[in-house]
Design a protein around this nucleic acid. Structure first.
Length: 722
DNA sequence: GAGCACTGC
């Protein structure tokens, strides 16, 4: 078995999160300032030194913290860096993992007086990172968290009037930009982890660039912009900010050996299994393995197979602890990957791409990369259908753009995975594809902004009074069709009006933008007073906007079904969820109740938090908040009026088709209506995997839909034809 | 008739 994967001799290189650096790897013409030639040894100081799942902890020895700060390689470049940054409007900072850039640069800027007049903002794609970085930096400054150094994430604002260095999520800064598009609070915005190209960071690029320009024109305090990236391809960033210089910082990474397969592998799961046991039989048992697969089902199956095989290994072979890791895994089980394996036992972590960026596990010596990932994809066929539909002024289902599919990773992603093996010591990465195959991988992951539904982003840009969304200065422009589809959606929701050829928000549209929700959900809430069911709708929308509160362990299916029976409503999933939330509330938000009823208590607590945030927003808008008091029909009517674009009807042959494009769809197996055949439903989401599945369904009356949008439904509903 | 990568406001 072990030799099947067939690995040729290793290649050595010093990795960052990118390919090996060579002297000539920087294209001519780019201004690169080398700030440091050699990194030091040993750990410490850099970010993500602790697993993001763990609580950030304050160091008990402030002197030690200061000492560690000074021992960072970046410290030697401090003066040079400050001199450079002081004179620049914009800069791109390329820093390898462990260079200490995220914790140190904001402090240098502050100490250098750049943060005196206003706040220095540092954005992060993830909440945990923003929180732990703020904690770390406030420790280093020996101040209380929330004073000089603070953070702002959703539901949690630990800042004060004294705060000069503020860590925040990119989504949070974007939201702030809606009320102040010039970002007047800030003297400097640092966009960290820019290489990840989240949709929020990408929009911020444009927002920050426009604010910088406008502030200059108005003679206001200049806005300094620093883009930080951990990968080599920073040209795009530099070009976008009119040729901003690239400052280079070396980090501390350990060498990693890379093995490719000799032959392409048609079965990557089998190849992964073979590699794991090959390593297992040869390497000392203290060295852990991290395997990248695509999804929950695969990961659970592989974990089981590993356990089964490990039971029957020859004597003298170490034992094995196979641990699955994916986002929907209950928290307690996720924590297991951080615990050390018992003596004489090897930890094998089988993970989705969550271990690529979000979760860092210490002690990984081997990475097994299948080269596959499950991700959202932009489906050109759907776009074709859409543009055809648009020319006929018929509108597509809003989620028709997004398909979740197993696909090849990009080169950047492969390097990121490889880098996970060299965090504490030298490592080894087994790539389950040939070097030729690797060369054919896409260079970079397609930025999220070109793969996702743009309805929310478009609404936000319009709320910031961007003059023209179609010509907005995106660093990587989405296709015009793509933006046009978002505009069409917003028009249908009544959010837009065309004033002298210029798109502006209607009063409803402006209100919609105030909610941290998908526009259609915001619209549902805004419609609810008309149906006297705002309390109920707030609950339903909160439940829909977090991960499922239903916990379904496959091994206890019968139990789950029996327990869940009492909540099920024949009116569909929305009313069923409402019943569950009510029961949860009536038992005083009890965790034991959650456990007994197979409800994910963590997600349920989050629902309560979201609900209270949404309720506050309604309150500030002076919306009447009333309950329909058990009248579920008005709740369903309200859903029908706001989600009328996402409707499907039962066909004579027993299948379903969407009302507007007649696309064949099916009821998702997780729905309470899975075994039922209602004539007409609205759904919350279309999930396109093997089939197009409707998720979260509500039984509605075709007549209500007709009432909601007579023009849209004329000639469309089967009910109105027969 | 049978299934859901990952973030975030």
């Amino acid at each position: 078995m072990p030799e099947e994967a067939g690995f040729p001799p290793a290649k050595r290189f010093r990795p960052g999160a990118g390919p090996p650096r060579r002297a000539g790897s920087c294209p001519p013409g780019r201004r690169v300032v080398m700030l440091l030639a050699a990194g030091g040894g040993g750990g410490g100081g850099g970010r993500r030194q602790q697993p993001p799942l763990a609580q950030p902890s304050a160091s008990p020895y402030p002197e030690a913290v200061e000492l560690q700060r000074r021992s960072l390689p970046i410290f030697q470049a401090r003066g040079q860096l400050l001199a450079q940054l002081r004179n620049l409007d914009s800069a791109v900072l390329l820093g390898e993992t462990g260079s200490g850039k995220t914790t140190q640069i904001p402090q240098y800027l502050y100490e250098g007086g750049i943060g005196r007049q206003a706040v220095i903002a540092v954005t992060q794609p993830r909440r945990v990172a923003a929180i732990s970085l703020a904690t770390r930096v406030s420790d280093e400054k020996r101040t209380e968290l929330g004073k000089l150094v603070g953070y702002t994430v959703r539901f949690d604002d630990v800042t004060s009037e004294d705060t000069k260095i503020k860590f925040l999520t990119d989504g949070m800064l974007l939201r702030e930009a809606i009320s102040d598009s010039l970002l007047r609070k800030y003297s400097c915005v640092i966009l960290d982890e820019a290489h990840e190209r989240t949709i929020h960071t990408d929009v911020l690029f444009g927002v920050v660039k426009a604010a910088q320009k406008r502030r200059k024109e108005l003679g206001k305090l200049p806005l300094k912009v620093i883009v930080m990236s951990a990968t080599m391809d920073v040209d795009l960033f530099s070009q976008y900010f009119s040729g901003a210089p690239v400052l280079y910082l070396e980090g501390r990474q350990h060498p990693i050996q890379i093995f490719y397969t000799k032959q392409p592998q048609h079965d990557y799961l089998h190849a992964a299994l073979v590699s794991v046991f090959q390593i297992h039989q040869e390497a000392p048992c203290s060295q852990d393995i991290l395997v990248f697969l695509t999804g929950q089902e695969e990961i659970e199956a592989m974990s089981k197979t590993c356990r089964d095989i490990a039971k029957h290994l020859p004597d003298g072979c170490p034992s094995m602890l196979a641990l699955p890791l994916y986002a929907s895994l209950p928290y307690a089980q996720q924590l297991r990957v951080f615990q050390g394996a018992p003596k004489g036992c090897r930890k094998v972590i089988i993970s989705t791409n969550i271990a690529e960026t979000s979760i860092t596990i210490t002690g990984i010596k081997y990475v097994v990369d299948t080269g596959m990932v499950k991700a959202k994809k932009y489906n050109p066929e759907f776009v074709h259908v859409m543009s055809k539909a648009l020319t006929r002024a018929i509108l597509p289902p809003d989620s028709g753009l997004e398909v979740l599919a197993v696909q090849r990773v990009s080169k950047t992603q492969a390097w990121q995975r490889t880098g996970r093996a060299g965090r504490e010591d030298s490592g080894v990465c087994y790539r389950l594809y040939t070097e030729d195959e690797f060369e054919k991988f896409e260079k970079m992951t397609v930025p999220e902004i070109q793969r996702c539904n743009l309805t929310s982003v478009t609404l936000q840009l319009l709320a910031m009074k961007v003059p023209d969304v179609l010509t907005f200065d995106f660093m990587s422009k989405p296709s015009p069709d793509h933006i046009q589809a978002a505009i069409a959606q917003l028009e249908l929701l009544g959010a837009l009006e065309n004033k002298d050829g210029q798109l502006t928000l209607t009063p409803i549209g402006r209100k919609m933008a105030a909610f941290p929700l998908e526009p259609k959900f915001a619209k549902t809430i805004l419609l609810s007073p008309k149906f006297h069911c705002t309390e109920e709708i707030l609950t339903i929308i909160s439940l829909l906007s977090v991960d499922s509160v239903l916990y379904n362990p496959p091994s206890r299916r019968d139990e789950v079904q029996a327990v869940r029976k009492k909540f099920i409503s024949s009116e569909g999933d929305h009313i069923t969820l409402l019943n569950i939330y009510r029961a949860f509330k009536n038992t005083g938000r009890n965790k034991d109740w959650c456990k007994e009823n197979f409800v994910n208590s963590k997600n349920m607590m989050l629902v309560a938090e979201v609900r209270s945030q949404l309720r506050d927003i309604c309150f500030k808008m002076s919306m009447p908040i009333v309950s329909s008091r058990g009248d579920t029909e008005s709740v369903r009517r309200c859903l029908a009026h706001s989600l009328f674009v996402s409707t499907a009807e039962l066909q004579p042959d027993g299948s379903y088709a969407t009302t507007d494009t007649h696309q064949p769809v099916a009821i998702h197996p997780s729905s309470v209506l899975f075994h039922c055949k209602p004539a007409c439903v609205v759904y919350t989401e279309l999930l396109c995997t093997n089939k197009c599945y409707m998720r979260d369904l509500c039984v509605v009356d075709a007549e209500w839909l007709y009432e909601a949008a007579p023009d849209f439904f004329r000639r469309k509903l089967r009910a109105s034809r027969s």
